[in-house]
Each structure stands twice: as structure tokens, then as C-alpha cells.
Design a protein around this nucleic acid. Structure first.
Lengths: 119, 119
DNA sequence: GGCATATTCAACCAAATGGTTGACGAACGA
DNA sequence: TCGTTCGTCAACCATTTGGTTGAATATGCC
């Protein structure tokens, strides 16, 4: 079942926290260093670093170290997958899920063959 | 900030659990009683009842008691809100509905009348 | 009334979460 | 080299989570 995907677990869990959603919003504007991400929050740098780790594990952002600075970059693909899953409910109420899963598989395999569905 | 919405918190948190997503999938087919929802899971009825409570608080389902039986019904509106939030990250091809419809059409024509899938 | 069915409540538990602080390593610049 | 900045690690803490069990509350049926 597509709904069992641990990737969806990670994505939705990452999105369930307002701090993390705010971080994503910030990264929408531009790539940022960890310290700069943390700046507007009343929270320790460590806490933000953990949030970024969660976003990164979920594939929602990527992080690249350049010198001392670690740059954070929005990676919308994971969001896209989750969005597609959601739209199967929001708009395709009457639609056959099997067909939709096949569609997803075809879509995903054309981009990322490694994503273990049905795990 | 739109990303701070506690409604989004609830929605995404509810979606972050594979059991709850599976429940939503089941409800996609038809309304169900709590006991029937619980049946396929290797988990106590109480646990399922809690999951349904979480889905209900998130607005993803509604529950209506008729006699002894409490019927659970999918409520796609909350999903739509979250989906809209995700689309605000518009960097990904806003879920390709056209592609999916074409896919469906292709499926139907290749499978011909053999599709017993029934909408 | 009395018993079965449907669902929730209360109490409990282990594990995970989101946060803290202090110490640490790695990279920069004077 | 020395101090500063950037970021993570380790340990800890309170709260929440997802699950259990057993009792309780409705409701329906004979």
C-alpha cells in the first residue's frame, strides 16, 4: 500500500512542526546558513540544527558544507510526492487507488528508481 | 505567518502515521464503523479508536453515531488545505493532474473493458 | 431483565519528541 | 598561534506518542 511508505512518514512528520514549516518558508526565498536560519527563532542553535536534520532526513532540504558554513537548500521533490498523495484524497475521491499507485510508481521510477515503495 | 497554523500541525501530524493513512485509504472506499476500521489491523480496538480521534480532531474524518455504531466518514477538506499549503512551495510542477488523467485514459484503453475496478 | 455488541475511559508503559546546556572539532582571520 | 565563528555531539529533561489492558458506558436483541 502506498500509504505505508516510510518516506511519507518522514515528510509529514517533518511538516507537522511549525518551526520546521517556518524554516521551509525561509528557505523558499533563498539558501541559508544554519546560523542564519536560527537567527529569527527564540531557540538554541542546537535545536535548529536538529530541526534541519529532520528536514534533511525527510529529503525536504539538502545541506552542503562550504568552509565553516553549512548551506541549507529547499528540496521540493519530497513535498511534491506528499502533495500528490494528498491530492488523491482531496480531488480524486472517486478514483481507483490502484491506478493512482501505478501512476505514482511510473512517475517516481522515471526520476528516482531507488525509492522503496511497498516496503 | 501561514506556516504557524495549528490546523496544519494537526493535519500533518495526523498524516504522519502509516496506520492513520491506511485508515484514510479505507474510508476513501466507503464510510465504516469503528470496529470494521479496526478489523484489518493487528492492534487493539482502543488504539484504533485513538487514531480515529486524532483524525477527527484534525478534521480529516467526521464521526456520526447511529445507534450503537459510530460511522466514520472521510472529510477531504482539511487535506485540501494542507495540500494548498504545500503547493505554495510552487517550485514543483503543481501536481500533474493532466498527466494522471492521461495515465488513467491509457490504462483504460490498454486494459480495455476488462477493468473490473468499478469507481 | 439479562446478555451480547460497539465504543470509550482510565491507568499504565516504553519510546520518541522538542527542548536545554556545556564541551567539542573544524575552519577562518589577525 | 590564538581567538572567534560555525555547527554538532552528548547528556539530560519534561512532555507527548502509540500502544497495552481491564473496566465502564451505551445500545440492541431475546
Amino acid at each position: 500500500m502506498a500509504c505505508m511508505s516510510p518516506q511519507l512518514d518522514n515528510t509529514f512528520h517533518a511538516l507537522a512542526d511549525p518551526t520546521r514549516r517556518a524554516i521551509l518558508s525561509m528557505l523558499l526565498e533563498d539558501d541559508m546558513a544554519v546560523t542564519d536560519v536560527a537567527e529569527p527563532f527564540e531557540m538554541s542553535l542546537t535545536a535548529i540544527s536538529k530541526h534541519l536534520g529532520i528536514l534533511s532526513r525527510a529529503g525536504l532540504i539538502s545541506q552542503e558544507r562550504r568552509g565553516r558554513v553549512k548551506w541549507c537548500k529547499l528540496e521540493p521533490d519530497a513535498l511534491r510526492d506528499a502533495s500528490i498523495w494528498m491530492q488523491s484524497f482531496g480531488q480524486f475521491e472517486a478514483v481507483n487507488l490502484d491506478a493512482f499507485e501505478k501512476f505514482l510508481a511510473a512517475e517516481l521510477s522515471s526520476g528516482d528508481a531507488a525509492s522503496g515503495e511497498d516496503g
